[in-house]
Amino acid sequence: MYYSEFQLYDDRGPVQTVVRNYTEADFDGLIEIQKACFPPPFPEELWWSKEQLKSHINHFPEGAICVELDGEIVGSMTCLIVHFQIDDPPHTWEEITDNGFIRNHKSDGNTLYVVDISVKPECRKLGLGKLMMQAMYQTVIQLKLDRLLGAGRLPGFCRYADQMSVEEYVDKVAVGELRDPVATFLLNCGRVPVRLEKDYLEDEESLNWAVLMEWKNPFKNIQTKG
């Protein structure tokens, strides 16, 4: 199981930071994170339920982590393992995550797939999302998987949809000409765009598009010299 301590600094000074696996005792705090990250008019029924969270820790506890600041849970990240090849058919969030329950987790799969990552808005300048992402990269290496994979929303696309295609938008974000709140964050975490997913989830800002992005395990398929 994962447990790592850090000391970060905000306006108040040093802040004790812990990234660890979440447990049933954390469920209320995890739901509060969802409320803070997805306030109304976001549908309340789409926040994590305790049934979903319990399914996470029952099926794949190694993929269920949270981050604490001075003992308060302020962020979480959930993953499952799937079988994936780049030429696989398109998928939706509901299909790949079993509607958030991850009962389709495959311990013999090759890819760690991101179900969700959330950090309370007031804590986002501390780099907590990147800390959790790095923890999952370590999980990829430890479990000898091929990659970490996940689809990022494109909430900035709606402002440019009348000027360019979604392919052009992602290309411009990838080279730094445009900034997207989600895709740029994932790029800064070392993720690389793989392909676009149409109708990935119902998301007005992204016009239902998402970009599938991966981080490859650097210790797989290494060519050794004699």
Rank of each mutant, 00 (worst) to 15 (best):
E214P: 06
E197R: 11
G100W: 02
E72N: 08
K198P: 09
A161K: 15
G127T: 09
F219G: 09
R124Q: 15
F157I: 06
D26S: 10
Q52T: 08
E94M: 01
K120W: 02
P39T: 05
A161V: 08
A151W: 07
L112K: 06
L207R: 15
Q134L: 12
E45Y: 10
L69Q: 12
V67N: 04
L131H: 01
E72S: 09
E72T: 08
V211Y: 02
N104D: 09
K172G: 00
I102Q: 05
W93N: 05
N21T: 06
I117V: 12
I222D: 07
G109V: 03
G63R: 10
H105T: 09
L212V: 14
K172A: 08
T184F: 02
M1S: 14
G29E: 13
T97K: 01
E51Y: 08
N58M: 04
E204Q: 12
E167V: 04
L154A: 02
E62P: 00
E205Y: 13
D70I: 00
R191K: 14
T111C: 15
V19M: 03
S76V: 01
T224H: 14
C79A: 06
A183K: 01
D87H: 14
D199I: 01
V192C: 07
M132V: 02
V173Y: 04
P41M: 11
F157C: 05
C123R: 15
W209M: 02
E202G: 00
D70A: 05
N99K: 13
D203E: 04
N99V: 00
E72R: 09
S118E: 13
L30A: 06
L178K: 10
D87W: 05
D171H: 13
D108W: 02
V175G: 00
P218V: 06
R153L: 07
D10F: 02
L178Y: 07
L187F: 12
V18W: 05
T139W: 00
T184I: 01
P39W: 01
G29A: 13
Q34S: 15
W47G: 05
L30F: 08
A64K: 03
G13A: 04
P155V: 00
K198D: 15
I65Q: 13
Q163C: 02
D70E: 10
Q52A: 11
V140Q: 03
P41D: 10
P89K: 14
L187I: 09
D180P: 10
P155C: 00
L128T: 07
F185Y: 10
G190I: 01
I73D: 07
A151Q: 06
M213G: 07
V114G: 13
K172T: 01
K106F: 05
D26F: 10
S206W: 06
S4C: 11
E62S: 11
Y3H: 15
G152Y: 06
F6V: 02
M136T: 10
D146L: 06
S76G: 14
E168K: 15
I102Y: 02
L207S: 09
E24P: 02
